[in-house]
Design a protein around this nucleic acid. Structure first.
Lengths: 215, 215
DNA sequence: CGCGTTCGTTATAAGTTGTAACTCACGCTA
DNA sequence: TAGCGTGAGTTACAACTTATAACGAACGCG
């Protein structure tokens, strides 16, 4: 952060415009979904012509990729600060839910419907593994009950996806189920599949979290 | 199938073209995602001009809604036939996974990223509750262990979402977690979030299924 | 102060969805 | 069987979209 002074006025202006474009893009995505994102509409709202935005983003997909990167970055940051403040696995879970509810479409930018051909850039997968590492750190050290399953043996053998994290196989398994179960409740809630069902999604979330703790 | 004779030739032709359009649409969606679906491209592949398709579908969204309806119908059918053949909850789970893997984009048509403004037509929510009823039927009658949680009391009180299904509160809870947990694993697998992780998604799925049984 | 980089513009190409108006042919009915 | 109406497919068009190209102007660095 000490190098901000080295930026030229043009660079600062450029960054400012880029963030403003992304703000409008986020607003537009929250309103009508990512597929309805229009560079032209953003340009008009910013008071300039359509093609001008191509000075700042190579293409529409490039802008969306940037938003996906920001989403990952944002999730990794909230995870990291939450973990650094000494909170445990349930704390991480509630941080996740709060983050997701804060901007559902941002959540779906990461965990939503994949575009068949699309492959995320290398640095994005790096952030994803950063998130996984934080989750693994929090999963380690808890008491493990029950015998080690064949699946956990398999997990212990192939842990390169965890950055070769030195967690016991049960912890790897716990982190994985933490991820899948909370995503299961959360994504259905955010997608509106529980609307009109009368029960409180937060209670179902906490119920799953409780089941996660005693396993 | 015995009532096909009551249709006029024009109706039969119309139905044939409609299904052919939907086949091309499904193929296009599987290749490049739902957002890349183009009526023009479909028309050209079928050897006719773009606007001709508007005789068969009122709009692009109308076609997509039709595909969503078909997806729900297809899932309800496989669920129903699976349940009718006497299979239990695990059988239902494997039927679900097989159905999802058979056409991932069809799964995401139902459970993928929601479009903010969109509301599914009434009949589609009807099919959704049909699916839920089958799941509730299969969830009823299993032994319930552990005390009834406050959440389950709440579920028992607001069961109109289940079509007032006469299942014990624990069964309502079981059906809900069946849904959320399997969706959690399945959606992450289908979205490719497990690729390159080295473990077998089927084992994680079965592990979750096992945890579901002993709860 | 000048010069080069960068920004924003308009023009244009090639797409898209969707409407309007016009043929034409199919098939029901008289 | 003859005719007529309905529905299918066409082209033309409007209003969008993404994206490129070429031009002018302004900004800021040396």
């Amino acid at each position: 952060m000490t190098e901000t002074g080295t930026k030229t006025p043009r660079e600062r202006y450029r960054d400012q415009v880029r963030t403003e474009v992304k703000e409008h893009a986020r607003e537009q995505i929250a309103t009508a979904g990512a597929s309805a994102l229009s560079l032209n509409a953003i340009a008009k709202r910013m008071g300039m012509s359509g093609p001008a935005l191509y000075r700042y983003f190579a293409s529409r997909d490039d802008l969306i990729t940037e938003l996906i990167r920001d989403a990952y970055r944002s999730l990794a940051d909230t995870f990291r600060t939450t973990a650094e403040s000494g909170t445990d696995l349930p704390g991480l879970a509630h941080a996740l839910r709060g983050w997701a509810l804060d901007d559902p479409q941002r959540y779906f930018l990461i965990y939503g419907t994949p575009v068949p051909g699309y492959h995320a850039p290398e640095d994005i997968t790096g952030i994803a593994s950063e998130i996984m590492t934080i989750l693994l750190d929090a999963s380690t050290g808890l008491p493990t009950d029950g015998p080690t399953t064949p699946f956990e043996v398999d997990l212990g053998a192939h842990r390169h996806w965890a950055g070769d994290h030195p967690a016991p196989p049960a912890a790897l398994h716990r982190a994985l189920t933490f991820w899948t179960r909370l995503h299961g409740v959360l994504s259905l809630e955010l997608a509106g599949h529980f609307t009109g069902m009368g029960f409180d999604p937060a209670m179902l979330f906490d119920s799953e979290l409780a089941g996660l703790a005693e396993q």
